[in-house]
Structures are given as structure tokens and as C-alpha cells.
Write a protein that binds this DNA or RNA. Sequence first.
DNA 1: AACTTGTCCTGTCATGCCGTCAGCTTACCG
DNA 2: CGGTAAGCTGACGGCATGACAGGACAAGTT
Lengths: 213, 213
Amino acid sequence: MTGQVRTVDGRVAGRRGQETRQKLLDCLREMLSTSPYRDVKVIDVARMAGTSPATFYQYFPDVEGAVLEIAEEMAEDSVGLKELVEGKSWAGKTGFATSEEVVDGFLAFWRKNDAILRVVTLGAAEGDKRFFKIRMKVLNSVVAPLTEAVRNNQGKTDKTVDPAAIAGALVSLLASAAEHQKAFTSWGVKVKDLKPNLALQVYLGVAGKKPPK
Amino acid sequence: MTGQVRTVDGRVAGRRGQETRQKLLDCLREMLSTSPYRDVKVIDVARMAGTSPATFYQYFPDVEGAVLEIAEEMAEDSVGLKELVEGKSWAGKTGFATSEEVVDGFLAFWRKNDAILRVVTLGAAEGDKRFFKIRMKVLNSVVAPLTEAVRNNQGKTDKTVDPAAIAGALVSLLASAAEHQKAFTSWGVKVKDLKPNLALQVYLGVAGKKPPK
DNA sequence: AACTTGTCCTGTCATGCCGTCAGCTTACCG
DNA sequence: CGGTAAGCTGACGGCATGACAGGACAAGTT
């Protein structure tokens, strides 16, 4: 399927090698969530994994290369987010419940992977195609089905709105809110109130009208 | 006012020193917009400025310290964004025009400072208080007056919406759209269509109803 | 013009991380 | 038990960091 795991110099990795490799990835993950990306050093990751820097370079070209690995794994996970939207009803109260579940699921996913997503977001913003692609995969798992939902609801009544633009904007908003939740609390929005408010925005965007009380 | 400019070791900088300092900041700015943040090195900045690394360390503790300087300057600039919203009308067609101007002005500002804002965004997401504060200053210059606008329009008719949450969400969306404009084009949203769509969202959020055709 | 003073810059150095390689150790297999 | 490939690391040259002391420079003083 994905081909064999290979070292930088072309050897195929066996059981033990894969374990080491994985340990390095795990430690890098940990490292990313505790120190600024700029300060993550190969030597620290290696030390934490109880191995030497030379070993790190056997499996990854550099820190960025290893980060991409982690990011790709996460992007693979993200396809599960599709199910938050696909085949769900947007009518009346059920619709609002759908909206709440989308917000909840998306925020939870982002929170769980916040460290790696920060780096992906940075890389994408800096114009790195590999990171951009990964970020799109994550966002698309929600944007794609959500675009359909918009098209099937308010989209057909109002020709002036672009379903893709609406869906994209909503998911961008969710991503931003997840990454910078503290900003909202600093604006006086209670943590408990954030999700309902986001859910409201999503419902409004999809259904084109206020939810039933 | 802001006190005298001082070197790291406490000397006050004179005319020549300030020039060198400024040149270093300019080169750092340039550097940030051409290479990934992680790869920006003191030695490169110094070389570009036609001076030595030691000189850089006379004026800044490290790269981050210099970046903060640039960011603070930009945050100072950002207060001008207030005028995009303050005292503007949100009624009917004029209201939609206001909305368009907000979007336009905000995107232009972000675009102009995108390199430094990327780093600020990263720092804030990583939990660095200094970057967080700077980011809030920039966003607040729009969020604060926009919150008022929301309160004065749809806020008074519908008690369930939190004006701060709406305004914060809208500005978060604008920031996200500015930083990742390419994502929208990849969703099939034409560059020309992005601004009108964002303006629509802003108008909807503030006025609570669709704009007049 | 020589001197003084304080600013400004850089050569140099110790330290530490990067990235590579040769070579040693370990595991597996016939 | 010997061969073979995988796995790991010590060691090394190279480069960035960050500190310091001393030299260059500008501007005023005598």
C-alpha cells in the first residue's frame, strides 16, 4: 500500500527500526507541544527518545521532514470528520443539533492536534506546498460535505451566495476559533458560550435563517 | 514618550546607532517575507545589513526580540483600522458599502504586513503572552467598534446573540481569509468573489439580515 | 592640531547544534 | 556458526550563537 518504510540511505526498516522511528516521532510530537517550533532541535528530540542525533538523521532528512510525517498521519485521521456533516439533516431543531455536533467535533479534533496543526498552519501561510496540501485535506474533510449542505439548503433559494465560499468561510472560522480560543475569552466570551455561538453561525450559514427557538 | 532607544548593554543609541538598528529591522522584515521563520538566522540578517552578527546583538537580545519590535510597530499602525468601522452607518445599501470597506481595509492591512503577522499569529497560538497581546491589539482595533455596531443593530432585537462573539468571529474570519487566501481559491472561489462574499458575511453578522439587492 | 569622551562596530573566542560517515553491534537466517 | 543486512553511535568539520574587549569614529574642548 504505502510502500515499505525506508531509511534516508535507502535501507528498508525492520521491526526494531520502525519502533525507534515511531519513538522519535512521538517525542517530536511531545516537543512541539511544549516548546516553540523555532526552538525544537534535533538533539533534544533524540535525547528525549534516548538515542543519538545520528539516529534521527537515519529516518528523517530534518525536523521539517519529520513534522510532515506527523502531519500526514493527522491528515489521514481527519477524514473521519466528514461524518460530522455527511448525510445529516439541517431541518429545524435537528439541524441546529447537527450544527452543534460539527462545531464540537471540529474543535475537539483541532484541540487534540493543536501543536502539529500550528506548524501546518504556519507552513501553509508561508507558502509551502506540502503543508498547504495537508491543511487543505483537513479542512476539506468538512468543507466538501458542508458545501453540499449549503447548496442543498439556502443555496438553491439565493443565487447570490456561493456555497463554496460560505462553507470555506465557516470552516476557516472554526479553525481560527480553535487555534485562538483565548482571544475569544479575552473579548469577554465565556468558554461555555463560544460553542453555541459558533454553532449559530454555522446554522445561519447553512440554513440561511435563524434556528427555531 | 517611549523613552530613548537603548542598546542591550544599556547605552543610549545616537543618530548613527539608530540608523544601523533600523537597517537591521528592515532587513529582518525582508528576511521574514522571503524565508521560513524557522530558518531566519541572525547572521543572514546581519550580512544583508552589511554589518556583523555582533552588531545585531548590541541592539536585540535575539531574533525573537527584534521580531517583537517590528510587531509592536505594526500594532501601532493598526489602530488606524478603527476608522473603518467607527461612526459608520449600517443601514441599507450604505451599510453594505461599509461592510465592503471594512473587508477591503482589513485585508489590505493584513496583506501589507503578512510576514510579520504570520509570526505574531504563531507566537500567539503557542501561548506567548507578548505576541498574544500584539495580536489582540490588531484585532481589537476592529473588534471593539464592530462589537458596538452589532450591539446597536441586530443585538438589540435578539437577546440570544452575544455581540462580542459575533464581532470576534467575523474578525477571526477576516484574519483567516487574509492569511490563507489561497485556500479559498482552491475551493473554487475566485479572487474577485472573495471580498463580496466576506462582505456579505460581515453585513449578515452585523445587521442580522440579508442586504438590500 | 592634539586631546578627550562617549558612541559604534567588529575580530575573536568558547560553546553548542547540524549533518555526515565509518565502523561497531545486533538480529536474523541458512 | 558464519554471513548478511539492519541498527546505532562516536567523532568530526562546519556553521550559528552570544559575549567581550579593544579599535575606529564623530564631535566637541583646549
